[in-house]
Amino acid sequence: MKRSTVGPWIAFGLGALYFLIPLIATFEFSLRMRRGTYSFDAYAVVFADPRFQASFSYSVLLALITIVLGVMLVVPTAYFIRLRLPKLAPLVEFITLLPLVIPAIVIVFGYLRLYNSSSWLPFTSNARATDLLLAFGYVTLALPYMYRAVDTGMRAIDVRTLTEAAESLGASWATILFRVIFPNVKVAILSGAFITFAVVMGEFTFASLLDRPAFGPYLQLIGANRAYEPAALAIIAFLVTWACMGLLQLVLAGARVARQR
């Protein structure tokens, strides 16, 4: 018996309307800058704005630093937990879930109090140190995604056999980690990296409260002062998110094909 698909089609159709209309409306709004006709003026204004260029590249750089720090932190941890310290797995998993439990605004509030310029670790005393604190904060925010991605990747490969094989060939633990394990969880690292990138590019609370010139605070500033540029920026931000997720799908699909061969 074939069940009717009318209901599912209605659910899908209504969903499509709800999700596409704001995108269409935003795009339409972003073209309205020149009176009486559609134009890409708002985009031209945005791209020509030096603050856009500065804040966008600041956030890109910060996202890359966050990814490198996050990978350096998560991959060895996931490896040693899986191979030698499985007893600690629940504790580590719990810790990596905490950034989803504790609101970001609370975490950054803690940073501001704990690491103020008169504290034992004065991260907020100068701009470079605050940048570093912001990157650490983003590593924290990305921890749930990064750890899950890498841990899933480790589950798919036989960590123990790979390690024993490398050990019997006389490899040191550093060689094992960097030349055996890393290449084998490349796809997992990449998928964690794309999500991290998307998270960092759109983040507002940390950057704003730590007073760093990132993309999020710039968006807020433009939103409060301009009419058409915010719509153009929303479209740009959506495309950045879409690109991250698209690349993620591509990497995962590529890995699936490679495994089938």
């Binding site: 969903g15 935003t26 999500i195 931000a237």
Partner: peptide
């Protein structure tokens, strides 16, 4: 739908507010 959900669940924050202002704000589409 699954790919779009991955994008939309990460499309939060300030750009989302802009999108809804352009849709349902006083001069929205």
């Amino acid at each position: 739908v699954m790919t779009f959900s991955g994008v939309a669940s990460n499309f939060a924050g300030i750009p989302l507010a802009f999108a809804f202002l352009a849709t349902l704000g006083r001069t929205g589409l």
